[in-house]
Computed example of a mutant assay.
Amino acid sequence: MPPEKKIKKGSPPWMATFADLSTLLLTFFVLLLSMANMDVQKFREMLGSVQAAFGVQYEVQGDFQPVAVPTAAPSAQNAAAPSRRISEARAAMESRQMSEQVQNFVNETGLGSEVNVNAGNKGVRLRVKGHLFFEPGGAEIRQEAKKLLEGIAKVTKKFDFYLTVEGHTDDQPISTPRFPSNWELSAARAAAVLRYLAGDGVPEKRMSAIGYASSFPIAANTSEAGRNKNRRVEFVFTKQPPRLGID
Rank of each mutant, 00 (worst) to 15 (best):
Val117Thr: 08
Ser49Cys: 07
Glu100Val: 10
Ala139His: 01
Ala92Gly: 13
Gln65Ala: 10
Phe134Pro: 00
Gly112Phe: 02
Gly48Met: 04
Val117Pro: 10
Gln77Lys: 12
Glu108Phe: 12
Glu100Trp: 09
Asn107Gly: 03
Lys122Thr: 15
Arg84Asp: 13
Lys147Trp: 00
Met98Gly: 07
Ser49Val: 08
Arg44Leu: 08
Glu108Trp: 11
Leu149Lys: 03
Ser113Cys: 01
Glu45Asn: 13
Ala76Lys: 14
Ala81Ile: 13
Asn107Val: 00
Ala52Gln: 14
Glu100Asp: 12
Gln77Met: 11
Ala52Val: 06
Ala53His: 10
Glu45Lys: 10
Ser75Leu: 04
Pro82His: 05
Gln77Gly: 09
Gln97Met: 14
Pro70Asp: 15
Val115Ile: 02
Asn116Thr: 08
Ser87Phe: 03
Lys146Val: 13
Gly110Cys: 02
Glu94Lys: 04
Gln61Tyr: 08
Ser75Cys: 04
Val60Met: 13
Ala145Val: 02
Gln101Met: 07
Gly112Val: 05
Glu108Ile: 09
Pro74Gly: 00
Ser95Ala: 14
Gly120Pro: 02
Ala145Ser: 02
Gln101Thr: 06
Gly110Arg: 04
Glu150Ser: 14
Met98Asp: 06
Gln143Phe: 08
Lys146Thr: 12
Ala73Val: 15
Gly137Arg: 03
Glu144Thr: 04
Gly130Trp: 03
Asp63Glu: 12
Val50Asn: 08
Ala92Cys: 11
Asn107Pro: 05
Arg90Val: 09
Gly130Glu: 04
Gln97Pro: 10
Val128Tyr: 01
Gly123Ser: 09
Ser99Asn: 10
Gln97Phe: 11
Glu59Pro: 03
Thr109Asn: 02
Gln61Ile: 11
Glu59Asn: 09
Val115Ser: 02
Leu126Gln: 01
Ala145Asp: 00
Glu135Phe: 03
Pro136Arg: 14
Ala81Ser: 10
Gln65Gly: 10
Ala139Leu: 00
Ile86Asn: 04
Ser95Cys: 12
Glu144Cys: 00
Gly55His: 03
Ala79Ile: 15
Ile141Trp: 00
Leu149Cys: 04
Leu148Thr: 13
Phe105Lys: 01
His131Gly: 05
Gln57Pro: 06
Arg44Val: 06
Gly151Val: 07
Phe54Gln: 10
Gln97Leu: 14
Ala68Asn: 03
Ala89Trp: 09
Pro74Asn: 00
Arg90Thr: 12
Val117Ala: 00
Glu135His: 05
Pro136Asn: 15
Ala53Glu: 09
Thr109Phe: 01
Ile152Lys: 03
Arg142Asn: 07
Ser87Gly: 07
Ser87Met: 06
Arg84Pro: 12
Thr71Cys: 12
Ala119Leu: 03
Ser83Phe: 13
Glu59Ser: 11
Gln97Asn: 11
Ala52Tyr: 08
Gly130Asp: 05
Ser99Lys: 08
Gln51Arg: 05
Arg127Met: 13
Gly112Glu: 04
Arg90Ile: 08
Ile86Tyr: 08
Arg127Asp: 07
Val56Cys: 10
Glu114His: 08
Met98His: 03
Ala52Lys: 10
Gln143Trp: 05
Glu150Trp: 07
Gly62Lys: 11
Val128Asn: 01
Leu149Trp: 00
Glu45Gly: 15
Gln57Thr: 09
Glu135Tyr: 06
Asp63Val: 12
Ser113Ile: 01
Val56Tyr: 09
Glu88Tyr: 13
Ala73Gln: 13
Val106Tyr: 06
